[in-house]
């Protein structure tokens, strides 16, 4: 068959596919979705024919584009079923961490280790805090907790301001810690250690000058979610980095891709934990609620986080 006859014989089919795709792109006509597969497959066949018969670049390009659009429309998933997604994240995170127990524990130690060590070291050598954090940062930390501001409560409007600020700042730190994993894990390692040491120094400093009780009254509520969230973000990044460093029998790119996919439930849970932390920090931690309630609630939240993630250390299903 000559090209012109071929075009004449199939023009209608191509126009139909194009019409269906336009409809679907515009989000119209549920009927189009039903007709698409059959029409698309026939166009696939015409592309194969056009190629093997050498009908010229222009026709092949045209059909290639049509098939690509059809393929794009037919395959690939953009539906988000909330219940399914929640299960994927909440159950998936435990399965993933359980499968990867060692890296999970190492990531947590890489953050909590320097955090606690620095906090302790500052108690013994208080001047150490100044070697790590700048004097202005320490001064503002002192102001905030020594003045008792955080105990008397803020206006509700500034609660909302703080919520936005914490989200942007703290969740941003978490995401960057994950992203740093793409540099052979070095970025994540840096953020884990840096945040551990820096936060340890700031908090240690407040404790060293005798305001530890005030600080922890404020910090205990959101600390569980925020600190653990940073550790989890580190896990996700290190996972990607380890995939690049030791891909096993896969190519490095493939290993990186698979690691990132596996880490995704953990990324979502990290995001959720940091968001919850920002919420608690903005609307609860600085209210005028009696100290004892803050410690009780904060303590329970720590137990909750430990009980939830601790399941990853127990034997159980991994897939």
């Amino acid at each position: 068959m000559r090209r012109d006859d071929f075009i004449a014989a199939h023009r209608e089919l191509w126009t139909e596919l194009e019409f269906l795709l336009d409809e679907l792109d515009a989000g119209k006509d549920p009927g189009a979705a039903q007709k698409l597969p059959a029409v698309y497959r026939r166009v696939c066949q015409t592309l194969s024919l056009a190629r093997s018969r050498g009908y010229g670049r222009e026709l092949i390009d045209e059909l290639n584009g049509l098939v690509l659009r059809g393929y794009h429309q037919l395959y690939g998933r953009r539906v988000l079923v909330p219940a399914e997604w929640l299960r994927y994240a909440l159950v998936g995170v435990i399965r993933q961490l359980r499968k990867d127990r060692v890296l999970f524990v190492v990531s947590m130690l890489l953050f909590y280790g320097p955090f606690l060590l620095t906090m302790g070291a500052v108690q013994i050598w208080p001047e150490l805090a100044f070697a790590i954090a700048g004097p202005e940062q320490l001064a503002s930390m002192e102001d905030m907790h020594a003045s008792g501001d955080v105990r008397t409560g803020r206006e509700s409007s500034s609660d909302l301001a703080m919520f936005g600020f914490y989200i942007r700042n703290n969740v941003g730190i978490g995401f960057r810690t994950f992203a740093g994993g793409a540099l052979f894990g070095l970025g994540s390692l840096f953020f884990l250690l840096f945040n551990g040491v820096f936060l340890g120094a700031m908090i240690g400093h407040v404790m060293a000058i005798g305001h530890g009780a005030e600080f922890w009254e404020f910090g205990i509520g959101h600390g569980s979610f925020e600190l653990t969230g940073i550790g989890l973000a580190g896990y996700c990044g290190l996972k990607v980095g380890l995939g690049m460093l030791s891909p096993g029998r896969r190519t490095r790119a493939r290993a990186m891709f698979e690691s990132a996919r596996e880490a995704m439930p953990v990324v979502w849970v990290t995001f959720a934990m940091l968001t919850i932390a920002a919420f608690i920090e903005a609307f609860w931690s600085a209210t005028g609620v009696p100290q004892i309630s803050k410690f009780l609630v904060g303590g329970s939240l720590w137990l909750l986080v430990i009980a939830y993630l601790g399941r990853a250390l127990l034997p159980g299903e991994t897939r």
């Binding site: 690509l68 393929y71 794009h72 429309q73 395959y75 953009r78 994993g181 793409a182």
Partner: peptide, 26 residues
């Protein structure tokens, strides 16, 4: 943006590539 095989990107793929842009920027 499409998946390696030409299919539409899903939430996971798009989230990963956009979060990791931070590392690309460095």
């Amino acid at each position: 943006v499409v998946r390696d095989d030409g299919a539409a990107v899903d939430w996971t793929a798009s989230t990963v590539r956009n979060m990791l842009r931070f590392a690309d920027f460095l």
